[in-house]
Design a protein around this nucleic acid. Sequence first.
DNA 1: TAATGTTTAGCGCTGT
DNA 2: ACAGCGCTAAACATTA
Length: 383
Amino acid sequence: MLSGVKLEANNEDWTTYYHDSELYPGVNSMGPNLTLNGYLPSAMAACSSMGGQYMSSGPSGCGVASPGLMGTGGLAGMPTPLGQMGAPQPGYSASGNSLYSLEGPLDGKPQGYRRSYSHAKPPYSYISLISMAIQQAPGKVMTLNEIYQWIRDLFPYYRQNQQRWQNSIRHSLSFNDCFVRVPRSPEAPGKGSYWALHPDSGNMFENGCYMRRQKRFRCQKQERKTPEPSSAPPREEGRTAAHSPGSSLDASPVQSPVPGLEKVESPQASPPPRASPAQHLQEPLHFHHLSPAPSQLPPLPSQDPRTDTHPFSITHLMSADLQHAAPRVDLLPYDAGMMYPSYGAPASTYMGMNSFGAREVAPMPVDSSYYSNMYSVPILSSS
DNA sequence: TAATGTTTAGCGCTGT
DNA sequence: ACAGCGCTAAACATTA
């Protein structure tokens, strides 16, 4: 069984902070929490009483299957930047690694009165942060800078030492197969590519642990720029998969409905090739995912009031202010279908999008159909 | 030139 | 003990 994830060297009782509406005045006004299509476990809060461990899996643990976050695009809505709740204060820990800011009260109370939660290092790995950012994006793609900004907005902690964590973000994007680089459209020129989640990455955090994946997602098939004998073993499994040229989505290409563009065969299940865009529309591709179908999901855990108010609860973070969500201007060509010319319909049509409207949108089927947008764009390979 | 992206290396932690 | 994962640093290449 999986054990919980310790927050670095922290063993403090986070329950101390759960009801800290003083520090997080917006917490109590969040209303009913938004769940990831109703299945998001509140990772931290639900496990808060486990001696500093955020997650625990097991029959009775809080490691409830959570296909929402990474597998079904269930994240919706724009984040409520914690920064609005507490601006960076002088005196926070400059170590960059501490979980808390040991000083710098947010509310004018004497120093040491209470540690600032908003400046604590979030209990999410960079991979999960990136995944969250991309998932909540209307087009399921984000530029590097937007990922930076999203993280900064959501976690004041990441307003410090930006060089450090941004380097780590870039490294994570490049290193991990679960992230794929997508070129910009000609209509939206600019620097840097878009980043998306690999359609087969599935629910990397289905164990409910956002600090450490159960298993790293890897492209199983590799395509090398310089062909090697098939008998040549990979240099090193992970690195090869992650860094070999063209490894972003580099399995055997399947004929794309868009000339010149390639779709990638799932390493886990081979979808039938699309006969036509129309067929694609009628018969969304179904790929094997780690996530179970909704009908197979366990019942929703009972709502713990702490769940909704924990400042780092994804539920909390992602729940607010849908009305503030604005369509991305630079992605309009994508959403307008320009990226999918042969489909002739907006991308959201294919994606079963939850573009800022998941509260109203019925839970998506747990398949890859909504990922299908990514099958129609060329994936940049490293060079 | 700065931002972005790739790659290597080393370390610590966790699970088996 | 070992393997795998995540984080950090750093060097280097590419691109707008």
